[in-house]
Design a protein around this nucleic acid. Structure first.
Lengths: 121, 121
DNA sequence: TATACATATGAATAATTGTTCATATGTTCA
DNA sequence: TGAACATATGAACAATTATTCATATGTATA
């Protein structure tokens, strides 16, 4: 039988299975790790960025080309590339006036494929 | 040399590399697929839902226990479980008044791990 | 050096979304 | 059947975010 007295400290909701809660809590990664993980997936959670990532998985591209491909403003694409850059999902090289972007990481493709597996299941 | 005349139809941004854009466009998955993919990752892109998923990867749990574990309102947890349910990431079984949730899919763990790989790289 | 061009960025706006509060639904048991 | 409890849900609010517009930065070349 769960010990109803020990739960007041946890939160105002009564806990039914104290041992399970404690066990799971013990094995939970650090708060910061889970936060970072959510932040990473948040970056994948936008159609525009997904399209950019998909495009870059096919070929290195410049900002201008991506804007044309996606029928979007150069500015909008650039703003999203900034987000992708901060998440270290894309890297870039400059050649004169043109900046070429490409995927920074081989995990990205795998995360993509796993996601597609789930959708097509 | 890119054909500057053919690009007006694409968008108002000049395209630098027409062949690349066309090649990438041809290989792009359907709009709907990429939309669904973004929607899936959007579900992963929230700290609360990540925590719930992580908890469920350790053990089946009821709503009440999750609320206690995460120090959150039962209502907040329930709302997020709804999102996870709609994304087919969790399933549930009812045992009397108590509803137990668990992961619906083995992909989830893999997506998680891939994400962690990226973070810890 | 001045102009043209590719890209980046700040501010503003519109849309989306997570949480809270109040309450409804569904189940058990006296 | 009615009270108690676990969960679900609708509406409202606050916070976050994607896009647009205007403009700045950086590079090449005439």
């Amino acid at each position: 039988m769960p010990n109803k007295d020990s739960i007041i400290e946890l939160c105002d909701t009564p806990v039914i299975h104290v041992e399970i809660v404690n066990k799971v809590r013990k094995d939970m990664p650090e708060e910061e790790t889970l936060y970072d993980l959510a932040e990473l997936f948040k970056v994948f959670g936008d159609t525009t960025r997904i399209k950019i990532l998909y495009a870059l998985s096919a070929s290195e591209m410049c900002v201008c080309d991506m804007a044309a491909l996606l029928s979007m403003t150069q500015s909008a694409v650039s703003h999203q590339l900034r987000v992708l850059k901060q998440a270290r999902l894309v890297k870039f090289r400059r050649d004169g006036k043109v900046v070429y972007y490409s995927l920074d990481d081989e995990h990205i493709q795998q995360i993509f494929n796993q996601g597609l597996d789930h959708i097509n299941e």
